[in-house]
């Protein structure tokens, strides 16, 4: 019925030379995103490196979140949203005809702007995602490992049965990260994960991201330039196209270059705070 992403990966490993896309975690080709007739994101070509943190920055309303949500097909739930072009993962187009969006999201996890734990216990928050995805191992171990990986274990190990809403905002967000990694995705998308948190919680999330990138590819949307400079290895700069009024990536490079020697005048204006 549908192409298993795994299977494809193995087949491509054997013919590595012929498939240069293999070295990227995700690659977009001429990606356009529409809401009805409205072109929201235009002609994006990105190669996201594996086990690195890639930041997407830009002024508000330029389509950063829309682009991020295109990576795991979360835009499917928006009425009238549609995509042209390709989003490739292991050489497979995620918008191909036989691709199952549920499996896509199982492999590409997401952390949202505001912490959104389920109104269940801390334990159940992590166990639920694992359970629906057919996890067969020891659930207690999985919960502990996910919480340790999210640097939350020591704070919650004595109250796993308590409702997740009792946690602070920063703890809730780390719980959401733990929940995402418990289903073992390859990529984690983060949509301004620290924007609703205080500076100390933000710092902890940023430290956590450095830890997580050893195993995961992370793509983060942020409008906080310092954060992008601090945490990311690569940075994509988005801006509204002056003619079409659609968001597009105007510059993509390693973070150091973007923040010190940007090629595009607009990027320079933006990162130095001279923008609009």
């Amino acid at each position: 019925m549908f192409v298993s992403l795994r299977e494809k990966e193995e087949s491509t490993t054997s013919t590595q030379a012929a498939q240069p896309t293999q070295e990227y975690a995700i690659e977009t080709r001429n990606l356009n995103i529409y809401y009805g007739d409205f072109l929201a994101v235009q002609d994006v070509n990105l190669q996201i490196q594996k086990q690195k943190i890639t930041a997407i920055i830009g002024p508000s309303g330029c389509g950063k979140s829309t682009l991020l949500r295109a990576f795991n097909r979360m835009n499917d739930f928006v009425n009238g949203a549609r995509v042209e072009g390709e989003v490739l993962m292991h050489g497979v187009n995620l918008y191909g005809k036989d691709i199952d969006p549920v499996e896509v999201r199982r492999r590409i996890g997401m952390v949202f702007q505001k912490p959104n734990p389920f109104p269940k216990s801390i334990y159940e928050n992590i166990a639920w995602g694992a359970r629906i995805n057919g996890y067969k191992g020891n659930m207690d171990d999985l919960v502990e490992q996910a919480l340790r990986a999210a640097a939350l274990w020591n704070e919650v190990k004595d109250k796993l049965k308590r409702n997740a809403y009792e946690l602070s905002g920063g703890q809730q967000q780390r719980l959401c990260i733990a929940r995402a990694i418990a289903v073992r995705p390859e990529i984690i998308l983060m949509d301004e994960p620290a924007s609703s948190l205080d500076p100390i919680s933000t710092l902890r999330i940023e430290e956590l991201m450095q830890e997580l990138k050893k195993n995961y590819t992370i793509i983060i949307v942020t409008h906080n330039m310092q954060q992008a400079a601090r945490v990311s290895d690569y940075t994509a700069m988005m801006m509204l196209d002056s003619e079409t009024r659609a968001g597009t990536v105007i510059e993509f490079n390693d973070t150091k270059t973007i923040f010190t020697r940007p090629r595009d005048k607009r990027t320079e204006d933006y990162v130095t705070g001279r923008f609009g």
Binding site: S4, G134, Y135, L142
Partner: peptide, 21 residues
Amino acid sequence: MYHYVYPEETELQRFIQARYR
């Protein structure tokens, strides 16, 4: 690396199909 036991490949396909049904 942690120890995870998730269905993979053909088993995963069958699993997802059963859920869809």
